[in-house]
Nucleic acid binder design. Structure first.
Length: 502
RNA sequence: CGCGGGGUAGAGCAGCCUGGCAGCUCGUUUGGCUCAUAACCAAAAGGUCGUCGGUUCAAAUCCGACCCCCGCAACCA
């Protein structure tokens, strides 16, 4: 089994604060990162901010900071970092594309691609709105005018550097053909193949009109097209051009998580760039879907953008993670519904899981003086196999379904055994066996839950009398076998995990 | 012909690739239990699987046409 795992999220524009969409992508990545750590792998988990985009310049200007763009970016990047920290994200690096090592990586990368003969000078022609500092196609315009400024765009011609993307058309198609897992979910493969076959053209990778961004190596009158620079962050993050040893260990990425809107860049442009530079391709690019919010498109103009920090104050990061991952299959579009969030909280978390933990610990307090009884035979292995398979396939929703099947079976088991009746009948052996099975099952549930709901899992460990740090430093194989809970150790019921809300 | 996703019980979804008794969760109704956060367990009711046509012994599943909804293409992952 490989001993390392490298995964990335997209890097985010900092022209606003993080929304639930950004949080979702990052939660998914964090869940996978934690699972891989649970397997004992060395995990590199990269997220960060895309700071060389024109959008950021516009945002800075809108905030009255056009003379202090870098200062604006510093503040916004700090806000994003703080937000992810407060949501419990365990990224190993927060990359900013204005950082020095990234510039170094971009330069080294550019030189490789240039040496390969894949950069050429051409003419970029288009309709340009000087106020937007952006190019538009005829379709973008409204009555021939810029949709934002209602002015006539200039028809301009500009000498630019181009990347010979189409040179890699056949190689890309072949790679996707031979590696069916490369583009996920599989429904998206056709989309990508169709794009590569029918629409992909060489791309302009520099702009003379831009004032912000990384200068083109060797020609400072041009700035790099933001995507060309942005994609390189994924290799900067593991030491390309700065720490070759680390780079060799971690690249290629095992998983690159993206939104469905940027799948093209990650499954066509990016792999072609890597081929040109003579570097291996990421193993999997997985696109998640988009949310509507309570049935409506999420948009700033509608003002219904959900703030993950506010929502976490109302619930908790664990609960938001649980809801989003349980309710929406990774890859599908879905509706982020406040009603359903509440329903998931009440039913799955308060009634089923929370109440299960509470009733088992209450019985342990009542019947065995809060001590773990003698070991008894039990079985959970089938669930572990299904769970591991689901996690390996990135079927996170399925993994949660598997955990909840265990939770339901456990509630059923209590009903069958009727520990309260056994207590009255003084059937000590059966009672103790039952309680041991229940407590040990809770330990397994906590383990399976940990990647998804780390705080909850850790609370469960504490309640079961286990020390959290110790529990996570032991090897996963020994933690997952039956019977690790030590007879005689104390449990502590404490407060319910998920109190019912009024 | 811009690209893509979807229409399955009151709600939200799985099943479709590799045809073969229509499944899950919530909600509703009834019953059980008392360890538990009025939680838990059991049972029941509830669907002509968007429409029309085709292939087949057999279609939610394959093929064709059509209707409707949604996302991207513009702030937004």
């Amino acid at each position: 089994m490989p001993t390392k795992f490298y995964l990335t999220t997209p890097i985010y524009y900092v022209n606003g604060k993080p929304s639930i969409g950004h949080a979702y992508t990052t939660f998914v990545a964090d869940t996978i990162a934690r699972y891989q750590r649970m397997l004992g792998k060395e995990v590199e988990f990269l997220t960060g901010t895309d700071e060389n985009s024109q959008k950021n310049v516009e945002a800075a200007a809108a905030a009255g900071r056009e003379d202090d763009i870098q200062g604006y970016l510093d503040e916004m990047a700090a806000l994003w970092q703080r937000t992810f920290d407060s949501l419990g994200i365990t990224n190993t690096r927060f990359i900013r594309t204005t950082e020095a090592d990234h510039h170094k990586a971009v330069e080294a990368f550019w030189k490789r691609v240039e040496a390969k003969g894949d950069i050429y000078k051409g003419t970029y022609e288009g309709l340009y709105c000087g106020k937007c500092e952006a190019f538009y196609t005829e379709n973008d315009l409204e009555g021939g005018l810029c949709p934002f400024h209602k002015t006539k765009p200039d028809h301009i011609k500009e000498d630019n550097y181009f990347f010979a993307l189409t040179k890699y058309r056949d190689a890309l198609l072949e790679h996707i053909e031979k590696n069916p897992e490369f583009v996920q979910p599989k429904e998206r493969r056709n989309e990508i193949v169709s794009y590569i076959k029918n629409f992909m053209t060489d791309v302009s990778v520099s702009r003379q009109t831009m004032k912000w961004g990384i200068p083109v190596p060797g020609d400072e009158t041009h700035r790099l097209y933001v995507w060309f620079d942005a994609l390189i962050n994924y290799i900067t993050g593991v030491g390309f051009a700065t720490d070759e040893k680390k780079f060799d260990r971690f690249w290629p990425a095992d998983l690159q998580l993206v939104g469905k809107d940027i799948l093209k860049f990650h499954c066509a442009l990016w792999p072609a760039m890597l081929m040109s530079a003579g570097l291996p391709l990421p193993k999997v690019v997985l696109a998640h879907g988009f949310f509507t919010v309570d049935g409506q498109k999420m948009s700033k103009s509608l003002g219904n953008v959900v703030d993950p920090v506010e929502l976490s104050e109302q619930y908790s990061p664990d609960i938001i993670r649980y809801y989003a991952i349980r309710d929406i299959r990774l890859g599908d579009d879905g509706d982020f519904s406040h009603d359903r969030l509440r329903a998931r909280y009440e039913t799955d978390l308060a009634n089923e899981l929370g109440n299960l933990v509470h009733r088992v610990l209450t019985m342990t307090e009542k019947y065995t003086d809060a001590k773990v009884p003698e070991k008894a035979q039990g079985e959970i292995l089938g669930a572990w196999q299904e769970y591991q398979q689901a996690m390996t396939d990135y079927r996170l929703t399925d993994a949660l379904d598997i955990i909840w099947a265990v939770i339901r079976r456990t509630n059923q088991f209590i009903e069958q055994q009727q520990p309260w009746a056994l207590a009255k009948l003084e059937e000590k052996k059966m009672l103790h066996d039952t309680l041991y099975v229940l407590l040990e099952t809770l330990r397994h549930i906590a383990w399976m839950l940990w990647p998804f709901m780390p705080d909850t899992a850790e609370k469960m460990f504490t309640k079961l009398g286990l020390e959290v740090p110790k529990e996570f430093s032991q090897s996963v194989e020994s933690a997952w076998v039956w019977g690790e809970l030590k007879p005689g150790s104390g449990v502590e019921k404490g407060e319910p995990l998920f109190p019912r809300k009024e």
